[in-house]
Amino acid sequence: MYSPSPAERFFEDFHQRRPGTTSAAFAHLRSDRHESSYAALAATLLPSSSPLTVLDLACGNGYLLKLLDELCPGRLHLIGVDMSQTELDVARSKLPNDVRLLKERAQALSITTASVDVVVSHLALMLMDDIERVLGEIHRVLRKEGTVVAIVGRGFLLGPVGETYSQVFREVAAQDALAHLPMGDPRMRTETGWLELFNKDFEAVTFEDIDVSWQPDFAELWQSLSETYDIDRLTPAARVQLKERLSTSISTLEQPDGTYVTGWGLRMIQARAR
């Protein structure tokens, strides 16, 4: 019988309390080439004019599914999978009835073998337990030469703001006695590790680094950071302390208009099923 890991229990609780946090944080942030990291994923499907069955793995509140439906009306058969019922309920409220939504784990999909043309995933794959089993399930449901396209994390906050935040967070977390919570396989932090993981069942693996720009004022910065997994796990007192120390520590980085120059380091991975 399946028993969720501590990380999975945390993710399920977090997304029950905070549905839609990922799209709220990233849907409006541009890169040099794309309107958003979601748009970067969607762009990989646009060159084809053929009907496609597309699975969004860890679809959250359905933001990417809705974008795909709007960009390719009538051409895509869309399926969304997520382990959070709260996120799926939000997705159901905004998506057409013909979009199929499933409450499942990526490690054990009910989807028919060789029935999917493209698997997409936005900022979720690198957090999943037993990634080899996940990739095995992705390969199983894909048709031969089907593709998987995923946006994964490459870094946290960019530039001096990110460096300062990381230092302050480590100090506050240590004082708060924040327990270590493993999230994802360490191999998913490097291109070499991803190549090792994809090597069994996939070929033509490519990587594209995507930096999305962001110039928030401190209120916007803190609002977004406060909805990240690590800060959510701090005690209320530690969150207050982190906010105060971060504000002081990055004050010299504030621009004349009251904003800070930063962003997020992302990576897009594409691969073809053997």
Rank of each mutant, 00 (worst) to 15 (best):
E196P: 05
I210D: 03
T192L: 12
A204G: 10
L157F: 11
W194P: 08
R140T: 07
D201R: 15
V205N: 06
E171S: 10
T192I: 12
I138D: 04
E191Q: 14
G146F: 12
R189S: 15
E171M: 07
T206V: 10
E171I: 10
D201Q: 12
H139N: 09
A150T: 15
V161C: 02
A179D: 02
V205G: 05
H139F: 06
M188A: 11
V168P: 03
R143L: 13
T206H: 10
R143D: 11
G193W: 00
T164N: 02
E191L: 06
E191S: 07
V205P: 06
M183E: 09
F207V: 10
R140D: 09
P160A: 15
E203F: 08
E191C: 09
L195I: 11
D209G: 13
V141N: 05
R189N: 12
H180W: 12
R189H: 09
I151M: 15
G162F: 10
A150N: 14
V172H: 05
R187E: 08
L195P: 01
F198V: 02
L178F: 02
E191P: 01
R189A: 15
T192G: 12
E203L: 04
I138T: 14
G162Y: 06
V149A: 13
E163Q: 15
E191T: 08
L157E: 02
N199Y: 08
P160M: 03
V141M: 07
M188V: 12
V152Q: 07
R140K: 13
A204T: 05
P160K: 13
G155I: 07
A179L: 07
F207Q: 06
G153C: 06
L178D: 03
V141D: 04
H180P: 09
E145L: 12
G193Y: 01
L157A: 00
V161H: 04
A173G: 06
T147C: 11
D185G: 04
A173Y: 03
L195Q: 13
K200I: 05
G153M: 09
L178Q: 01
T192H: 12
V141A: 05
G153T: 08
L197Q: 13
Q167S: 13
F202A: 00
Q175T: 07
E171Y: 05
F169S: 00
M188D: 01
F202P: 05
E208V: 07
L197W: 10
E208H: 09
M183H: 04
A174P: 00
H139K: 08
R170A: 14
D201N: 14
R154V: 06
L142Y: 03
L178E: 03
E145S: 15
K200W: 00
V148E: 01
D209I: 11
R143P: 07
A177E: 14
G146R: 09
Y165K: 00
I151K: 02
R189F: 07
Y165A: 03
R187P: 02
P186S: 10
N199K: 14
M188Q: 15
V168E: 03
A204D: 14
L195R: 15
L157N: 01
W194G: 08
P186K: 04
L178P: 01
R170Y: 06
G155E: 14
